[in-house]
Each structure stands twice: as structure tokens, then as C-alpha cells.
């Protein structure tokens, strides 16, 4: 049981560090997906631990939200790329400048 949770938080930490380090917006996005997947693993493991399916239902909802989020996020990245010709998060400072 504990090893599943350990793997889950390892993946979550790696995803979080990736969000902090990477500058390509698409890779940052993939790191967010990794974090969501890590929480899903924890949900499924806890569902098995407690012997009911609520955890799996939560994982299912996380997947639905992740799918919607990816669609919107990638659309935003594409529209930024159209105007700025770049997907680097450093250069998307339109709101600041």
C-alpha cells in the first residue's frame, strides 16, 4: 500500500519540479498532466485500501477535468503561438508589458 503512495508522491514531486524548471509551455503542461496522474494513482490505491469505489470515482472525475483542461490549455498555447511565434513561457508576458 505504502509503496503505491510513495510512487504517487514521487511522480507528483517530479511533475511539480518540471513545472518550475521547464520553459516550453507544452512541456509545462505535460508536467501538470503528470501531477494529475500521480494523484489518480493515489486515489485508486486508497480505494483498494478502504475497500470501496469512491476513490475510483474521484479518479474518473479527475480524468474528465484533465481532458477538458488539456483541450483549453492547448488551444491557448496555439493562439499564443500564433501571435508570438513562440511557446516559451518567458515570452508570454503580454499582460505585463
Amino acid at each position: 500500500m505504502t509503496e503505491y503512495i510513495t510512487l504517487s508522491f514521487l511522480l507528483f514531486t517530479i511533475g511539480a519540479v518540471g513545472v518550475l524548471v521547464r520553459r516550453n509551455a507544452i512541456v509545462v503542461f505535460m508536467c501538470v498532466e503528470l501531477m494529475l496522474n500521480a494523484t489518480n494513482l493515489a486515489f485508486v490505491s486508497f480505494a483498494r485500501q478502504h475497500g470501496n469505489l469512491d476513490g475510483q470515482t474521484a479518479a474518473f472525475f479527475v480524468m474528465v477535468v484533465a481532458a477538458a483542461e488539456v483541450v483549453i490549455g492547448l488551444a491557448i498555447i496555439v493562439s499564443i503561438y500564433r501571435t508570438r511565434r513562440s511557446t516559451s513561457v518567458d515570452e508570454a508576458n503580454l499582460l505585463k508589458a
Partner: peptide, 27 residues
Amino acid sequence: APFLFAVQIIVYTGAIMMLFLFVLMLV
């Protein structure tokens, strides 16, 4: 969790990763 197994393959590796790769090709 056989249902989540199928959903993970179909939604994540099937749809979401494809979307990522499409956008990578675009940019």
C-alpha cells in the same frame, strides 16, 4: 480497477497524448 485501466489507455494515451503531439507538430 479495470474500468480506469481502459479509460486511462483510451483518454490519456489515446486522446490527450495525441493532442499534445498534434500541437507539437503545429508549433
